[in-house]
């Protein structure tokens, strides 16, 4: 048995150990703010792990979503709740120990079951020998897209991606429905929000120079997704993060003047509609739903190039929805639903 040294297992084990330590710390700390920060650190570590496992698209998404947006959402919520957790009572200590014992027994049983799993990183494992070789060998000739992940995401599994976009859209609506109606009695929670005093010139100056670059980079990530890691999800999240950065460095009112509530909602729905609309257009021309080959006649290119363009079009739809949903989630969660002042 040979072991390929390009997968540095010592490095892997170090990162995984640090992840376990971060996970335990995030759960054990008494302050919610520090818990949120440690969860962000955990996301960065798993991001290193993704990169090391050659899942660059996943690492990209994790860096933008897990480490950046999630942490901001946690911090935005933490300002409305008691930031210190209550100490456990003795009675609960007993329950804790019983749960720990049960969890350890289950863990040992499942660890025992890993003996039946294929060896890690084995190229001949069942997962890597049936469907995926077909994708790798055929994707370029069928869709003219060198990034196989993008081709599978937006072409072979485009139904899946469309409904993922719908789920994200639905989440933004649910957050709005839950938080927007704040009765007078319950407005008290919003007074816990710390007041923002004065203006921070350094932060604002930094934001002014970073945000345009971020937005151009987001567009590059979206449009270059066929040839490099990236695509609609990553580009959309980075674009949304640029508006969140604006709201953090200035204030929520300022960013909402630049990207108004109505525009956010139209973008949320518009991206999904663009995606579904392309599918419906293909259906109208006698092909399958989301069978991009149908667009060949309209665009005046070959079937294969039409699929490449179709992938780009639905990625733009995904990008618009994800961008607007990230902004909407931040606006609602950080302001507690009243859209007056954010984090």
């Amino acid at each position: 048995m040979t072991w390929d040294t390009s997968l540095l297992w010592q490095f892997d084990i170090l990162i995984l150990l640090m992840m376990v330590i971060c996970a335990v710390t995030a759960l054990a700390l008494e302050g919610l703010l520090s818990s949120a920060i440690v969860t962000g650190a955990y996301s960065f570590l798993i991001c290193l792990m993704w990169t090391h496992m050659r899942a660059v698209d996943v690492a990209f998404t994790e860096a933008a979503v897990g480490a950046a947006i999630s942490t901001v959402l946690f911090l935005g919520t933490a300002q409305y709740v008691n930031r210190w957790i209550k100490k456990d009572r003795p009675r609960e200590q007993g329950i804790k120990q019983i749960t720990l014992v049960i969890a350890v027994i289950c863990a040992v049983m499942m660890l025992n079951a890993t003996r039946d799993l294929p060896e890690w990183a084995d190229p001949a494992s069942p997962a890597s020998t049936h469907l995926s070789p077909r994708y790798i060998e055929q994707a370029y000739f069928e869709t003219a897209t060198p990034n196989v992940v993008t081709a599978v995401l937006a072409d072979y599994r485009s139904y899946d991606t469309m409904f993922e976009a719908v789920v994200v859209f639905a989440a933004a609506l649910v957050v709005m429905v839950v938080l927007r109606r704040t009765s007078h009695k319950h407005r008290m929670a919003l007074h816990l929000r710390p007041k923002r005093a004065g203006r921070d010139t350094v932060l604002r100056g930094a934001a002014q120079s970073i945000i345009p670059v971020m937005q151009i980079f987001a567009l590059y990530v979206l449009f270059h997704g066929h040839y490099s890691p990236g695509g609609g999800f990553q580009g959309g999240v980075i674009f949304g993060a640029s508006f969140i950065l604006l709201a953090l460095c200035y204030n929520l009112k300022f960013s909402m003047n630049r990207f108004r509530e109505h525009a956010v909602l139209w973008c949320c729905a518009g991206g999904v509609l663009l995606y579904a609309g392309i599918g419906a257009a293909c259906l109208a021309m006698g092909w399958n739903f989301l069978g991009y080959g149908a667009l060949a006649g309209v665009l005046g290119v070959s079937d294969v190039m039409a699929r490449s363009h179709g992938i780009l079009a639905v990625e733009i739809g995904v990008g618009i929805t994800v961008m607007a949903v990230m902004v909407s989630l931040y606006n609602d969660l950080a302001s507690g639903g009243d859209l007056e002042e954010g984090l």
Binding site: A55, D57, V58, T61, E62, V65, G66, I69, S70, L73, A127, L131, S132, Y135, I136, V148, V149, V152, L153, R157, D160, T161, E164, V167, V168, A170, A171, A172, V174, V175, V178, F233, V237, V322, V325, M326, L329, L333
Partner: peptide, 20 residues
């Protein structure tokens, strides 16, 4: 590439679930 596609979308749905 297949697990990467599934996980990529799962991460974005994960943040939506976190928001809710």
């Amino acid at each position: 590439p297949l697990p990467h596609v599934l996980i990529l979308t799962a991460i974005v749905v994960g943040v939506a679930v976190l928001g809710v």
